[in-house]
């Protein structure tokens, strides 16, 4: 096409290159540069201001001996496992139900998905109110006659995570359902006909035929939920502020507090580097599965 004159490789397709400058800057300066910067400074003893005085793995040792960080990690593991399991199961079951040619499908879908349009702050505050022991569910059930009914997850150290989970699932399951529904609609009708002819029960068809066929959808959803869980921050801030005590602290909050409230920069950098590491552990196998097999693209 452009074999006639070739002045300079650099000026070929110049407009496209100019249009890509923001992307290149973002990719190089922010996503690569800023990430590396944080990793490097996590090995220093920066406190109020970043300083390049290397102290080896000291910050990480301090991090892993801090009870607040340990609690944060335990919390995110428990919350993450439960949230992942429940949102996948509930999301899939709801999608399977909606896929049965039910009436008012659009109405149901609208209802299940609307919380996803709301921010975590709004979600956290609403559930804080509903779970308020003085006025919320607990007091309502007590007024029905069960005087000793206790349901105050947000004020109980061992239950607070489940309080967060109720709110988190309320906000996020609609999305999972939507993705699953799209996946189910992508399954060929013939599969269903074949399994019906063979007399396979519906639940078996789902479990052994449909779900394995929907593997890509499940993996995408999994990666999506997982990367959201690692970032969990707003919901905790709004609903519990990390309390009672430190019972609902999460890593993202630990990092934020170290960076902007406790003037302990390097601790924050070390914490965020650990978060990055977690994401890589999830992401690399996924990228390998997704893109490793095929050579193209």
């Amino acid at each position: 096409m452009d074999r006639a004159g070739r002045p300079n490789q650099l000026f070929r397709n110049l407009n496209a290159k100019i249009a890509s400058i923001p992307m290149v800057l973002t990719a190089v300066v922010i996503f690569t540069g800023a990430t590396l910067w944080t990793v490097v400074y996590s090995f220093t003893n920066s406190r109020l201001l970043p300083r390049l005085e290397f102290v080896g793995f000291d910050q990480y040792e301090r991090l892993w001996s801090s009870s607040r960080w340990i609690v944060s990690i335990q919390n995110i593991m428990i919350y993450g496992t439960l949230s992942l399991t429940f949102s996948l199961v509930i999301g899939f079951v709801l999608a399977a139900f909606l896929d049965q040619k039910v009436r008012f499908e659009n109405t149901f879908r609208t209802i299940f998905l609307y919380p996803f349009a709301l921010s975590f702050i709004v979600t956290g505050l609403v559930w804080q109110w509903i779970l308020n022991p003085e006025f919320g569910i607990q007091s309502v059930v007590r007024s029905w006659g069960w005087e000793n009914f206790v349901f105050d997850p947000l004020y109980n150290q061992s239950l607070v995570l489940y309080g967060l989970l109720i709110a988190g699932l309320w906000q996020g399951t609609g999305l999972v359902m939507c993705l699953m529904l799209a996946g189910l609609r992508g399954i060929d009708e013939e599969i269903w006909k074949a399994s019906r002819v063979d007399g396979i029960p519906v639940w078996k068809t789902y479990l052994f035929i449909i779900i394995p066929m929907m593997r890509p959808v499940f993996i995408t959803t999994l990666v999506l939920i997982a990367s959201g869980i690692v970032r969990l921050y707003d919901l905790v801030v709004a609903q519990t502020s990390g309390g009672p005590g430190i019972a609902s602290e999460v890593p993202a909050k630990y990092v934020y507090d170290s960076l902007f409230l406790r003037q302990n920069l390097a601790q924050g950098f070390a914490g965020s580097t650990m978060m990055l590491l977690t994401v890589l552990i999830v992401l690399i196998p996924w990228a390998y599965l997704e893109f490793g097999g095929k050579k193209r693209d």
Partner: peptide, 25 residues
């Protein structure tokens, strides 16, 4: 253009990096 896909791949992977890592820089 040459190299465009490399930057695009970095961009997509960057979407998964926790924001906390990039906040301070």
């Amino acid at each position: 253009f040459k190299g465009a896909n490399i930057f695009f791949t970095i961009l997509i992977f960057g979407a998964f990096v926790p924001y906390q890592v990039m906040l301070y820089p």
